[in-house]
Design a protein around this nucleic acid. Sequence first.
DNA 1: GGCCAGGCGCGTA
DNA 2: TACGCGCATGGC
Length: 302
Amino acid sequence: MTLSRAAFYVKHYDLALTLASGQAFRWRRSGDAWTGVIGSRWVRLRQEPEAIRAETAAAEADWQWLRHYLQVEVDLESILTAFPDDPPMRDSVAACRGLRLLRQEPWECLASFICSSTKQIVQIEQIVGLLCRRFGQALPVPPGMDEACAFPTAERLAAASEAELRACKMGFRAPYLSGAARKVAAGEVDLSRLGLWPLEEARAVLLTLPGVGMKIADCVLLFAYGFQQAFPVDVWIIKALQQLYFPKRRPKLPRLRRFSQTHFGPYSGYAQQYLFHYMRTARKGRSIQRNLLTVGQHSVEP
DNA sequence: GGCCAGGCGCGTA
DNA sequence: TACGCGCATGGC
C-alpha cells in the first residue's frame, strides 16, 4: 500500500478546534493525530506550529480536494477583522483562535444534520458512525488502522428500510432521512447545483426536503456550500444572542433571526460559529460562566 | 431522576 | 405570523 503525505503551510488554523466544533462528525483524535474520511479517502491529519500534515492510504496526484475541504487558502484574519466590534464577538474570537469553517460534501452534510435535531454532538457522531458502518462502502486503510467507510450515498439510504435506519439510533428522524434520501436519489433535488444559486433560492430548495427547516438548511448552506451569510440559529445561538446581546429583553426566535441578518456583517456565518463554540465551551467552566454574565451586562439596539 | 440536546412538522389562535 | 406540542434517545 502506498501511503501519501503532504504538508499545508498555514497560519491561524487550530485543527483540533475546527474538527471538533460540531460542523463535521467523522473525525477521531488518536494521540496527536486526527483520523477521518473525506469522500472516499481515509485521511489522517496532524497539527504543527506552521503547517498541517496529511496522510492518505492511497497515491494522490494532487491535494486540491484536501486544500478545499480544509479551506487553507482562506485569510482568517481578514474575516475576523470584519466581525462587529462588540464585546461578545471580541470574547468569542479570543476564546476560539484559529477556528475555521470546513467545506464538506453536501449530501453528507445534509444527511448528518437531518440526524442532528435535539441531539448532542457526541450522539450525532454516534449516529453518523453507525450509518457509515452499516451502509457505507469500505475504504482502504493503512495496515493496523481501524476499518473506515465512506458516508453512504443517497441511493443506498433511500433503499434502506425505516427500521434499518432506526437501528442507527436516530429515532423519529428516520423517516426524515429516508424521505430526503429518496428525493435526492430520484433527482428531485440536485445538490450539485445549489452552490451556483443565490442564498435564498438555494435555501428554498433545501427547505422542500423532509426534516429540513431553517436551521438545518443554513448549516448545509454554510458548511457544505460556503454561503458566508448563512446563519444557523440553534439553541446555543439563541442563548448567546439573548444573554450576550439582549440580557434584559430576551427576545424570541423571529426577532433574533432578524437581528442576526443585519448585525454580523458579510461573514456572519463565521461569526455564528465563533459564538456557538464560545457559548458551548464557556458553559463548562464556572470561571468563564462568570465572565459570560459580566459580558451580558451591556445591550445592543436591534 | 429530571433536564436538555447544532429541530421539525403540524395544529391552533 | 407566532406559539405549543410530540417525537426517540442518551449525556450529564
